[in-house]
């Protein structure tokens, strides 16, 4: 892909790329900036090569996800597979805010949260999510169903607490 086209695509998807980087970095703004910069540099230098097998957006999200994973592993060597699996909050600890979106999502296993974010927040198809996450479609479906179920439970619990406070 030519440089000016690449630059144009990156500019077009910059905002959602940053938000996705932030979601991959457990909502850490500074780390998200670094990850996005590193991902752009990879693309710019040709270390990440777009091969037209998926949409540019899907491919960009996959590059960002891998870069975020590398960055998190550098900071937290205990992370082997996915960010958030070992460092997230426990489901028994409800968030303090009535609706704290990020804290609620952090209570889910990282893969489930990412699948839900890609599906509902970024409006991606399950096939595209499988490409971004580099997992099979069946695994995406499993994470999707389990994630939805868990998030609904968390939301209902939050609402009950919210009503209880009032």
């Amino acid at each position: 892909m030519e440089k000016h086209l690449l630059e144009q695509y990156l500019a077009d998807h910059h905002r959602e790329a940053y938000l996705w980087a932030r979601q991959c970095c457990r909502y850490d703004d500074e780390q998200a900036k670094d990850v996005l910069q590193a991902a752009c540099l990879k693309i710019w230098e040709g270390r990440a090569h777009y091969n037209n097998q998926s949409s540019f957006r899907t491919w960009l999200f996959a590059v960002i996800r891998y870069t975020a994973l590398d960055s998190l592993r550098e900071k937290h060597p205990a992370i082997v597979d996915e960010p958030g699996d070992h460092l997230g909050l426990h489901a028994d600890e409800p968030p303090e805010e009535p609706v704290d979106y990020e804290a609620l999502l952090q209570q889910l296993p990282a893969r489930q949260a990412q699948v839900l974010l890609l599906a509902f927040y970024h409006n991606m198809t399950l096939e595209a999510i499988a490409t971004v996450m580099d997992i099979s479609l069946g695994t995406v479906r499993t994470h999707y169903d389990r994630g939805k179920k868990q998030l609904k439970e968390l939301l209902s619990r939050t609402r009950v607490q919210d009503h209880g406070r009032r």
């Binding site: 938000l19 900036k33 996005l36 540099l41 710019w44 230098e45 974010l117 927040y121």
Partner: peptide, 22 residues
Amino acid sequence: FFDGMKQADAQRPVPPLEKPTP
């Protein structure tokens, strides 16, 4: 839920795209 999250993020400042200098 995710619409609410999007609305919250809509006010979030996004750092400008810096052209990487190889």
